[in-house]
Design a protein around this nucleic acid. Sequence first.
DNA 1: TTGAAAATGAATATTATTATCATAAGCTAA
DNA 2: TTAGCTTATGATAATAATATTCATTTTCAA
Lengths: 143, 143
Amino acid sequence: MQNLSKMDILKSYLETKGLKSTSQRDYIADTFFKTNTHISLDELLKKVKRKTPNIGYATVYRTMKLLTECGLAIARQFGDGQTRYENLPDDGHHDHIICIKCSKICEFQNQKIEQLQAEAAKKLGFTVVNHKLELYGYCSECS
Amino acid sequence: MQNLSKMDILKSYLETKGLKSTSQRDYIADTFFKTNTHISLDELLKKVKRKTPNIGYATVYRTMKLLTECGLAIARQFGDGQTRYENLPDDGHHDHIICIKCSKICEFQNQKIEQLQAEAAKKLGFTVVNHKLELYGYCSECS
DNA sequence: TTGAAAATGAATATTATTATCATAAGCTAA
DNA sequence: TTAGCTTATGATAATAATATTCATTTTCAA
Ligand SMILES: [Mn+2]
Ligand SMILES: [Mn+2]
Ligand SMILES: [Zn+2]
Ligand SMILES: [Zn+2]
């Protein structure tokens, strides 16, 4: 399952779950796969409706739920009350830093932090499954 | 403002804002100050109603908003859809590790992680105001 | 004491998310 | 290809947490 495209991964996930392929689902997924932002359901719905205006909110909602389940999308909550989705990154896990004035979101990776997290968890007897690290502040243009 | 009790800090905050002292507000704040958990509004309301059953949800909500504003309470969201509040800790900032099975919450401090966060932010031109680090996994009893 | 300003609490509004249901579409086996 | 069963869709409604409204009560400074 290394070199399959995202759409192929989705298709095989649907198959294992006994789910069906539909034009709406495909188009929503494809539209999402082409984004490189942290997109909300409303934003994605708007994008999708440009070509297929009759598509419903519920279908976008269910498709993103599906993509999250199979790992192709990651659901994020940055505190503005809206769940946002991003594509599974090629280069592995990353964390976020968010500007509290203009809402700009930057991403960063820090292996040392990840390692220290694991150590802290181990010390408390926990087995970490996932984590959330978000820094909030002012970006260079807003400070 | 070093050695003032939390209630005194609240009182002086109210004063600067031209707000008034009321028995309800005092009792809710005092009840909250005595907690040492991450408490939800519903839980706090229930606790408060034991002695003063006629107190309303809105007053608890508004009091916690006030305490959060003046820094005496910290609002946390651990992903269960409920905002939880904790007292401003005496020993400074801490982060959390949450069991995804039994919901146990442990706290930890790690100065090295904090430092690395600051460095990562600086590299991106950000000035960090606050941050959120949450580890999710299984506690020793659940793994 | 009194009157303007703020607080209260019940109720309602808002908002994001999730569920329902009648109908449409996909798929499998004849 | 078609029949028949399953799943998907989209409009709408239900949920649930949070936030606001408003008539009434309370506070507090003059
Ligand atoms: Mn990201
Ligand atoms: Mn805590
Ligand atoms: Zn900014
Ligand atoms: Zn546990």
